[in-house]
């Protein structure tokens, strides 16, 4: 009993000091809530793959030169009857929603159909949505490299009137949206059916960082 009677009881001041220290450690070690994204986070974030092409205005484009901006990169072609136009319209809506903050947004539509999507054709297509959007023409080798660099699948369908004809053909392609942050890191992806309402909050976070 004597032993218990002589045990030191921590003072109130000591308890407070310990609690404060614990809180400090938690703050310093980053115990704040983890960012919740609507898109799928790339973990760990990696530098965005190489993307070099010619913009619809004839100027060379290199994604690495967009550092300082948040970039949305997606792939398609202008002879795409169904989905691609809505993809561009959706991103136009995203840019409209962001308002002035969209000044730091680089929207990059990459054609996977170099045969039909000349720079001139892209110039008649992309600015209809927003003249600040990039519309890239890549050559055949650059398109072929998208698989290894971006994990983007591109498959050309048979021309409608036979393999040797110059008739209409589809281009099946990955419909993912890739989001690159101001530091050039690939941070998020969205599936083809993501909505503008789901993309805007994530972009606001990245634009605010």
């Amino acid at each position: 009993m004597t032993v218990f009677a002589t045990k030191t009881v921590p003072s109130t001041k000591t308890v407070h000091t310990v609690l404060a220290s614990v809180l400090l450690v938690l703050l310093v070690t980053g115990c704040q809530p983890k960012q919740q994204w609507n898109g799928a986070a790339e973990d760990p974030a990696m530098p965005a793959p190489t993307l070099i092409g010619v913009n619809w205005d004839g100027e060379p484009f290199d994604l690495s030169e967009q550092a300082g901006k948040v970039a949305i990169v997606f792939f398609g072609y202008t002879m795409c009857p169904d989905v691609c136009p809505f993809t561009l319209a959706k991103i136009k809506h995203v840019a409209d929603e962001l308002g002035e903050r969209a000044e730091d947004l680089a929207v990059v539509f990459v054609s996977v159909d170099p045969h039909r999507d000349s720079v001139e054709r892209l110039a008649r297509y992309v600015p209809n949505f927003n003249s600040s959007f990039y519309g890239l023409h890549l050559d055949t080798d650059q398109v072929a490299a998208l698989d290894a660099d971006w994990d983007v699948t591109v498959q050309y369908g048979q021309p409608k009137d036979g393999p040797r004809s110059d008739s209409f053909y589809y281009v099946d392609h990955t419909g993912t949206y890739f989001i690159v942050d101001r530091q050039g890191q690939l941070r998020l992806t969205f599936p083809p059916n993501a909505t503008a309402a789901q993309m805007v909050p994530d972009l606001e976070v990245l634009l605010g960082a």
């Binding site: 169904d82 989905v83 498959q155 099946d172 599936p191």
Partner: peptide
Amino acid sequence: THETVVEEGVMRM
């Protein structure tokens, strides 16, 4: 008559 189908993120016509 055509249909767009999404298979593992790839949009197929």
